[in-house]
Write a protein that binds this DNA or RNA. Structure first.
Lengths: 261, 261
DNA sequence: CGCTAGCTTGATCTCACTCAATAGCAGTGG
DNA sequence: CCACTGCTATTGAGTGAGATCAAGCTAGCG
């Protein structure tokens, strides 16, 4: 479990592994020195195929993973076989940083698409904790961001109806994609099935399908072949009652994420 | 906002202010030295009356609050006046520790009952961050615990029906109360209205009332005059599909919280 | 070509919401 | 002392958003 073969050597040139880490957030970008330290801490990179479980709940772990490429999920499964997503992760997300202090996770972590991750042994984090309080605070910030997203997800499923939930989720994804430069004015790629969107929004795949049609008919957005095409961002933001402050984005990106509302 | 009168002097004798902080958790108790440092960091204690808002969302804060006595809530309000609780806090909880790295909160924090809190200026946390990595890691752990609870709340409202939600919530409260020695074998005090339980479980007060009757009729528990009387803990745990691992309790308390399941 | 996974649409059902009326209880003031 | 107000709890009747069940469709792929 702890011994992983170094299949792909660490690349520290050109596009940096940490390029999307904390990118466009309110606390400002990482310095090059900070990036160096973090990239040195990454012992290796690794790939997983879509659908694979990366970390299973309850198992003691000694490594955390930084998502470099692809989409990951965090989910809680029920005895009757239903899956509930409690998080969707994009490149630049420190997917299971919380494993560092918790040791065991209370949920599963999986690959939604083929992914590339960087692995950081917890001894490296120990070192950062002692030697680099500045970086520690930034990593802590990341955990808190995660919790802030959980709270908003809680609001989403308990405070919004089906249409608004999906709209809100699309707005969040759009905002986070914008932050890592993975969305343009017209939309973004979202390689999820309708079933998975349902697992995020606590809806059945059947109802997600109906809601997507509604969003289309309202002229707000179109979801087809793993891409969200936004036709009316302000309308979508209003439909989902989306306020991006919980993402702690840089002002510029926050403005773009709401269509300048 | 930042200047607060030192109405009640800090007491460092007898029952320590930090007595419930991280009490009975899996990472072990705080040492006396750690308690000393944290208690020195608490600039003063303060009281609020039930119903008051302690921290409002969006306002920059420079102090975090440790709950010493009473119950607090964290909630997101909707435009149509509905309130959604995203957290309930017990003595020993570091209610808005996340304000330290986030600066502004994305939700409101309020007093559910009359409360006493300890105030820790963020400069003190800065000092701890630099000088005491061990304490920093413990505080970080607390933030992560918070996030873990959010995830389970997400599961509760999206994966369980009305009866199970309330049962799950009662089980969580029981477990957390046990951890701070505020519950006995028969039950615990829970000074919430049915409306507030509804705001936690995403149910209307009317439906909470019906669910409470069901729980009574099933012989699982009774909620009356702000107290949960548990008649069949194992049954309640089963009804709520409650697994306390997300609370990262000490083994002893975890066992008590499930009735030795 | 057939198989499978995902999407779509329709019909029916149900859990929890809404609306409404009543009762209990605490506090307040005459 | 009782009358009044406001909050909380309780119970009933009717409603509706989304679930469930079922069938057909589409597209990618070995």
């Amino acid at each position: 479990m702890t011994v992983l073969h170094a299949s792909s050597p660490v690349t520290k040139t050109a596009p940096r592994i940490t390029r999307n880490l904390l990118r466009n957030r309110s606390i400002g970008e990482l310095s090059n020195a900070e990036r160096d330290i973090l990239e040195t801490a990454i012992s290796e990179t690794r790939t997983f195929r879509a659908g694979n479980t990366v970390v299973r709940h309850g198992v003691e772990v000694s490594i955390s993973t930084l998502l470099i490429d692809g989409l990951m999920s965090r989910h809680i499964d029920t005895r009757d076989g239903k899956r509930h997503l409690v998080g969707v992760h994009l490149p630049g997300d420190f997917v299971d940083l919380h494993a560092y202090a918790l040791r065991k996770l209370d949920h599963d972590v999986g690959a939604l698409t083929d992914i590339t991750v960087g692995l950081i042994p917890h001894e490296e984090l120990d070192r950062i904790l002692v030697d680099h309080p500045g970086i520690t605070k930034r990593l802590w910030f990341l955990s808190l961001l995660d919790a802030a997203m959980h709270r908003q997800w809680l609001y989403r499923v308990s405070g919004l109806n089906a249409l608004a939930r999906v709209a809100h989720f699309f707005c969040e994804m759009n905002a986070r994609m914008l932050a890592i430069d993975a969305a343009d004015e017209s939309g973004f790629s979202l390689p999820l099935t309708q079933l998975e969107i349902g697992e995020v929004c606590s809806l059945t795949n059947v109802h997600v399908c109906r809601v997507l049609r509604q969003l289309r008919e309202l002229g707000l957005c179109t979801f087809r072949s793993s891409r969200v095409e936004i036709s009316n961002l302000k309308g979508l933001v209003a439909a989902g009652n989306f306020q991006p402050d919980y993402l702690y984005l840089s002002e510029r990106v926050a403005r773009r994420a709401t269509g300048g509302a």
